[in-house]
Design a protein around this nucleic acid. Structure first.
Lengths: 146, 146
DNA sequence: TTAGATAATATCGTTCGCGATACAAATATA
DNA sequence: TATATTTGTATCGCGAACGATATTATCTAA
């Protein structure tokens, strides 16, 4: 049996890449309502869990570099959702805090996971397979992010 | 049992998004050698399967819009891997053909899937789970891309 | 205490990804 | 055969991603 590995169909990379863009697309109508982008939503998810994080800590959680996070945080600051301030004890560090507006946004965001879950489960994949999918991705992530 | 759906950990979106970037990162050393980017590699994968495709057909295969593909093809043309020409019979259509250089690149690219497969399987996920993962992603893709 | 190393963040340049829109060619309709 | 609609591609603008590099601040070791 021959198998051409240089076919799109046979690659793992493409399904992950395409699924990522398609899933992100599902978030658009919800995020548009909140006035934020998908990566901005991820940053807020992190801050909603624990406020007052360092730029670096946020970057690590999202597996992004500061050269992506810094301008993103500036936009979130301009929109009035976070404020950034240098640490008193170590002036290299920048602490990111949610504003009142940023905290309030969490309440509006509660509809998002439900809406998306509904949409994804509507693909017929089933909750159990979805959990397995998530676990497999997590194991790939934990190994490749080292 | 309480479950906060607004936690990064509990979302499906993030693992897919992170895995996509991490897997793409694995391609970098290989692609750097060929002098192309990851999306450019995807376009070439498509053309290596079937040369002389229309811009739109390539876009559909990769689930991308022409406003992403067009500038990408221009760069591939500048680098001498493809050439674009208007169809004689329908001047709206642009046919994308591989150059000799573009065809030759396929031979150099054969090492990529093997190298990546090795790296991914090195995460300990196992070939079988990898196949299931791919299938699940494909079913999500086919439903969301409608 | 001071030069060198390290750490935390930021800047710059290039390429995507995509919504909105434009534009020309082809097709359909009146 | 004019006019409207559709089709295929391209343009524009903005916000990621990220490699390379810069800029401070802190730490470390001579």
């Amino acid at each position: 049996m021959t198998c051409d590995y240089l076919k799109l169909e046979n690659q793992l990379c493409f399904p992950v890449y395409a699924a990522s863009r398609l899933i992100t697309r599902e978030y658009q109508p919800f995020l548009k309502e909140l006035g934020i982008t998908y990566p901005q939503y991820l940053v807020l998810l992190v801050l909603w869990e624990e406020d007052g994080m360092l730029v670096n800590t946020i970057a690590q959680k999202l597996i992004l570099n500061t050269n992506t996070i810094t301008p993103l945080l500036k936009r979130l600051e301009q929109q009035g959702f976070v404020k950034r301030e240098r640490s008193m004890t170590d002036e290299r560090k920048v602490i990111v805090n949610l504003t009142t507006n940023g905290k309030q946004l969490k309440e509006k965001a509660h509809v998002i996971p439900e809406g998306i879950a509904e949409r994804i489960l509507g693909t017929g994949i089933g909750l159990e397979r979805l959990m397995i999918l998530k676990d497999n991705l997590h194991s790939i992530i934990s190994h490749l992010s080292k």
